[in-house]
Amino acid sequence: MTTSLSLSNTQKARPRRFGYRISVVGAVSFLIIAAWALVAVFAPYIAPHPVGDIVDFDFFGPMSAQFPLGTDYLGRDMLSRILLGARYTVGISLAAVCLACFCGVTLGMAAAVIGGWFDRVLSRMLDALTSIPSKILALVIVAAVGTSIPILIVTLAVIYTPGCYRFARALAVNINTMDYVTVARARGEGLGYLIRSEILPGIIGPVLADFGLRFVFIVLLLSSMSFLGLGVQPPFADWGALVKENIGGLSFAAPAVVFPSIAIATLTISVNLLIDNLPQKIRDRSEQ
């Protein structure tokens, strides 16, 4: 067993059998994400109506030439609301998920490599953090520091960091026992090098898959946060909140509840498919 492992270590740089080329699915996913990002940036210029304007006395209006995606529960133009909502959903969720994963994964790898009391204390602290219900956490934050978008991002990140940490640590602990890591450590490499060059490449696949999932969770959690009074203030709303405020229209399949859901799905599926179609490339680069 040992022999085969050390053998494998020397052969690590050997090219993989799985694809180098950019897959069609990956490209399409990337385009969708880019399109939403553009929408997020230029939303105020392309939205046909002001986001808070009641433009129609009817509610849950159907799709029409004037209101391409119908109207919401107050008679506001859905298209404009979804376009403006992209800013919050894309911006806040991406920022929060990046922050959560960066902190969680870095700490997780560090805990695995350093081990000992550092690992124990950190692990138990983060376990305890997970046990504190996110509603209390959110309420305390609103009460203590008020609400703003940076605070919202940090809150979301704090809620999801322990999960990232546990997952990354579990992966890293496995890698950490591999002989090539032991060898590197014996060479006297520093913590930064071990984490970056030895551990990270080995866990990047699952970590990225996890990143995609957490992104979805954060998009959905965001909507609950605004209902707790944390973050996005009316008349603006993120996509999850749009679904929530129009859920009454579900009985008659109102476009107002269908389209924000579709918007969420296009974004989250694209992010995950892009990730599924990236890993080989990233991994290969990291090994050069």
């Binding site: 909507s223 859901s261 989250t268 599926i269 498919l273």
Partner: peptide
């Protein structure tokens, strides 16, 4: 399987339940 799993969690829980 991949698309299905993501699609399923992308739909908010309250919507799945209500639907």
């Amino acid at each position: 399987v991949s698309i299905f799993t993501i699609a399923v969690i992308s739909v908010p829980e309250f919507m799945v339940a209500t639907l």
